[in-house]
Design a protein around this nucleic acid. Structure first.
Lengths: 205, 205
DNA sequence: GTCTATATTCCGATAGAC
DNA sequence: GTCTATCGGAATATAGAC
């Protein structure tokens, strides 16, 4: 009995933090498959071939583990500014191409999927994701639109929201839900089609 | 003690199915607030001021309760055909206006939100929602586009997926996540802006 | 129809030996 | 760092009295 137990006397510390990495990797996969609530620490431990208690040794709580698991994708920060700086006429296509290229990176995708799920998960998780999204992205886009197009602040916010809604729908459909026709579409097709939409949300009065 | 218990000796059967309605109403609210996994039968029972066991009397399982709670929104079925029948040139605006009008109905919205959450909830809930969506909606749209525009089946599927992605993003942003600028936009503005997008996804080669 | 009581399982988290 | 053992609670679900 007790055969679900981890094998005992594990070589203490294979290499520095190797098991910790395995835990994070398993957590990303579990949160990505099941969403935050349905994912369990025990299932993550089993997936990482690790004792559940070890997870609590490395991470204080389930919420902390989730935060660490999705930390990576927040990186692109710098590139966003560069994209917004270019000429306004091709901003739509440029933005879509950048976002899609980012998502084609499997490492990014794996960490971003749990965040996309959390954004729609509950009325409690939504504001957490939205706060980050607004601070890192939406505010900058709205400011750029307001400055260039010289519209009111609320109009810029409205245009930004339209852009976000199409971006979210595209990414959710392609990478999370796997909608047929969208998940397997060539990137260039999407850049042209959705890029034109974004551009129109920027331009049209 | 045991003061969390329901008051005993409830008037047997207020009116036919009145408590059952209260349970369904509470379930819609809980599933809408927290999503399927985080919502609990106990919390639903407390919200409905009902004993948890009574829920199991009316509904066999949590999944059954969820299914019954969101059953209503599947109704519009008939109207979809009417919208697709009209002239192709204004199909975009017509579709957006119809969808938004539907969602402005609070009864529809309350039941549709849990479904939208479930669509992004996990890799297990996604196909359940998608199957319904495809059968009731996507297939018809794709057929109409393929017939009218005389494109290949896969091209029609691609266009339909683009349309769905923008629709999902708009509804999720406006009614589920409550994105500022989108949640409070006048319906006519959205009909014009998003309607034009949908129309372009139908038309542009 | 309604509720008490409970079976059964699983959860996140902790204490402490090694 | 790793694992055993377990705490304390909450989950869904069921059996059966009233």
């Amino acid at each position: 009995m007790s055969e679900l137990r981890r094998r005992r006397g594990r070589p203490p510390q294979d290499e520095a933090g190797k098991r910790r990495e395995a835990i994070l990797d398993a957590a990303i996969a579990e949160f990505g498959d099941k969403g935050y609530d349905a994912a369990t620490i025990r299932a993550i431990a089993e997936r990482a071939d690790v004792d559940p208690a070890l997870i609590h040794h490395y991470f204080d709580s389930k919420a902390d583990l989730f935060a660490d698991a999705v930390r990576f994708p927040l990186r692109p920060q710098a590139a966003i500014d560069a994209i917004l700086e270019g000429d306004m006429d091709q901003l739509g296509e440029r933005a879509v191409r950048y976002v899609l290229t980012l998502w084609e990176n499997p490492e990014f995708q794996r960490r971003a999927v749990p965040l996309m799920r959390a954004a729609m998960g509950s009325k409690f998780t939504t504001p957490i994701v939205m706060q980050f999204l607004n601070r890192e992205l939406a505010a900058k886009v709205a400011a750029r639109i307001a400055a260039e197009r010289q519209t009111s602040e609320s109009d810029a916010q409205y245009r930004t929201a339209l852009i976000l809604s199409q971006m979210y729908g595209m990414l959710a459909g392609r990478y999370v839900m796997g909608i047929p026709g969208l998940a397997d579409a060539p990137m260039d097709d999407l850049v042209a089609a959705v890029g034109a939409t974004i551009q129109r949300y920027i331009d049209t009065p």
